[in-house]
Design a protein around this nucleic acid. Sequence first.
DNA 1: ACGCTAACGGACGCCCCCGTCCACTTGGCT
DNA 2: AGCCAAGTGGACGGGGGCGTCCGTTAGCGT
Lengths: 173, 173
Amino acid sequence: MRSDARDNRERILEAAREVFAAEGLDAPLREIARRAGVGPATLYRRFPTKQALVAEAFTEQMYACYAIVDDGLADPDAWRGLSAVVERLFELHARDRGFAKAFIDTAARERGLASLAELLRRAEQTGKLRADVTVDDLVLVLLANSGLRATSETTRRAASRRFAELTLRAFAA
Amino acid sequence: MRSDARDNRERILEAAREVFAAEGLDAPLREIARRAGVGPATLYRRFPTKQALVAEAFTEQMYACYAIVDDGLADPDAWRGLSAVVERLFELHARDRGFAKAFIDTAARERGLASLAELLRRAEQTGKLRADVTVDDLVLVLLANSGLRATSETTRRAASRRFAELTLRAFAA
DNA sequence: ACGCTAACGGACGCCCCCGTCCACTTGGCT
DNA sequence: AGCCAAGTGGACGGGGGCGTCCGTTAGCGT
């Protein structure tokens, strides 16, 4: 790949992250191209489908999510670890509308949720997590959280924080 | 108003309810017109703005909601009443995507939530509802519930039912 | 320095939705 | 039965997003 092509590719991904975060995944691809300073054709050549662009744009955020879950697993107090995971995932999703949807979609598709299941299992063993809470419940509340639309990002983040609180109450034994 | 005009108006509202329920409020107005067997102009003449159509189409459902809340208030056990309200509102919103959004929008705008506040107050007095649960929390979970998109309506309703369960746990003292 | 080819992006045609206009139809009153 | 205004809907122009084509530009290897 030529150097200018590589530059453009990087600029497109950066623009995509910005636009997807602000407007969600439904944002027009041309706005991303415009913001990246490239023509539509360049974007379409580099990323034939919207899903390809989304996947590339959010790999970093995905790793951030994995890191959050790993942090939770590393906590000797599994319930506290789970609480932190919920709070941080909610926060991340509230900040980035597009990523929230992308995460839910991939989370539902692939079962890279093994780590989450493990965390739940450990938290249950501490007796602080209800025994009937499943990974599906976690996906459910994440989905619900991503549905919290609001006028301003500030409002949305506040709502998300409160929702995380309520969620943990519902999960607690 | 002429009789045929009245007929058309009714058919438009019926079609709107169907389409809004199935596809949400973002459905194209022309599909409603087509399903009602009228031209676009007729729809636009009768309902100049989409909001006017939405408001008319959902008055019945709105009254159903009021009835649900009134039923809850009528229950001598305020906590049981509140539980029923949550479950039934969630169910109603899961069944009708469009109405869920319309309800949230109007619920946030007008404060016809006085009855809900009263129900919460009574439930708190029974000691079964946490003292810090507010009407805003109810709106929050309703909003979250309306964000539960899913492929099939069946799946969505199941998710909604489970979500109502989790919500009541979070609310319980 | 030069040419070759990868890469670019403006422009095109397509589709869908919107809101409105106007020539035609039809209900209802006399 | 006949008139006429209320009512209708097909058709139009505008706007926006999509995906692609192709003439032009510019990186890079020689």
